[in-house]
């Protein structure tokens, strides 16, 4: 049985202009020890999705529909107090804006130990701080720097501290939201390597969220491409990269010369993402798609299975394959 199963999830924000559907009808599942990457440009709903999994949406955010089955339990049925127990203990997070994710007035080891002690109060302070030292060794952080304050750390060290913190309670799932965005390329590679090793060692499931398809390609078994709140293509890494089906995926991939080689600036795809308060009918990529036909607007979209592990959400692709 899958560790995480998300069915038909719809999430939105109440804004002054109306209800903004940031994520619509997203379904996927993740097995233990596997990693899944979500890619899309900013505003496509990938961060909202990550936050919703931990039920950490801002006050005006709502989960409208769907189910989140995690470890056999429906997270949306849980009370706030029960949810608090799930957080970090079973599901931890590595945050997008790493620079501010640590509290500036507390020492780093206190912040990591706090996570341990909150969920295992019986452990005792000494054991907890010993564990913090162990974690720091694991992520390559000198234990002599543990009593520092966050502002004394470099960006890479902060990110390592956050990873150590995420591992503190040995969670089953870690959601990594743009874990390396603010870092320079060399540190970025080191951190990704670290995450990969840890995943193998502890058999943790990881959800990667990034705008950078090359990062996701580096670390994920499965990949989901998101556009304007919807999942548009989903499949095993090799399938998505070697035979991308959706025009948006193709556009994303063409902006990188090679998967493992030098990174280039994401080439802008002409046009803008649609308004999510009043989304257009039919395919949302219509306005920016080179191969769009009038029928894309009118015909209902369905998921098309290309292989058992690879599917795409595109009317044109369906016609081509059906022919």
């Amino acid at each position: 049985m899958a560790l995480l199963e998300v069915e038909d999830l719809t999430i939105g924000y109440q804004s002054q202009r109306g209800f903004l559907k940031a994520v619509e009808g997203v379904s996927f599942s993740l097995d233990k020890g596997r990693s899944l990457g979500f890619v899309g440009e900013s505003g496509c709903g990938k961060t909202t999705l990550g936050m919703a999994l931990m039920r950490l949406l801002p006050p005006n955010g709502r989960i409208r529909e769907g189910r989140i089955l995690f470890d056999g339990q429906d997270l949306l049925e849980k009370t706030d107090e029960e949810m608090r127990q799930v957080r970090w203990q079973k599901m931890a997070m590595i945050f997008q804006t790493a620079m501010n994710a640590l509290n500036p007035v507390h020492r780093v080891n206190d912040q990591i130990a706090e996570a341990i002690l909150t969920h295992n109060p019986s452990l005792g302070k000494q054991v907890a701080y010993k564990q913090v030292e162990g974690l720091s060794r694991l992520v390559g952080l000198s234990k002599h720097r543990l009593r520092d304050y966050p502002h004394q750390y470099s960006g890479g060290m902060k990110q390592r501290a956050i990873i150590a913190m995420a591992l503190a309670c040995q969670p089953k799932l870690i959601i990594a939201d743009e874990p390396t965005t603010a870092l320079d390329v060399i540190v970025q590679d080191q951190i990704l390597e670290e995450i990969k090793n840890i995943q193998k060692e502890f058999d943790i499931s990881i959800i990667f969220i990034s705008h950078d398809i090359s990062i996701v390609a580096d670390v994920s078994h499965d990949i989901g491409i998101m556009y304007a709140g919807q999942l548009v293509e989903y499949g095993a890494r090799e399938e998505v990269f070697e035979s991308p089906m959706h025009p948006y995926t193709k556009a994303l991939l063409s902006s990188y010369p090679t998967l493992t080689g030098e990174k280039a600036q994401l080439m802008p795809i002409p046009g803008e993402a649609p308004d999510l308060i009043h989304p257009p009918s039919g395919c949302r990529f219509f306005d920016r798609c080179a191969g769009a036909r009038a029928s894309c607007r009118t015909n209902p979209l369905v998921w098309l299975e290309i292989t058992p592990t690879h599917k795409v959400f595109c009317y044109q692709c369906g016609r081509q394959c059906g022919r």
Partner: peptide
């Protein structure tokens, strides 16, 4: 609204600890 408050929430800390220990000193 700071990121480290979100971290504290994600860590599963009780609201009281978030308010008194993480938000108030800052």
């Amino acid at each position: 609204r700071e990121d480290y408050i979100l971290t504290a929430r994600a860590k599963g800390l009780p609201e009281k600890v978030i308010r008194n220990h993480h938000a108030a000193p800052n």
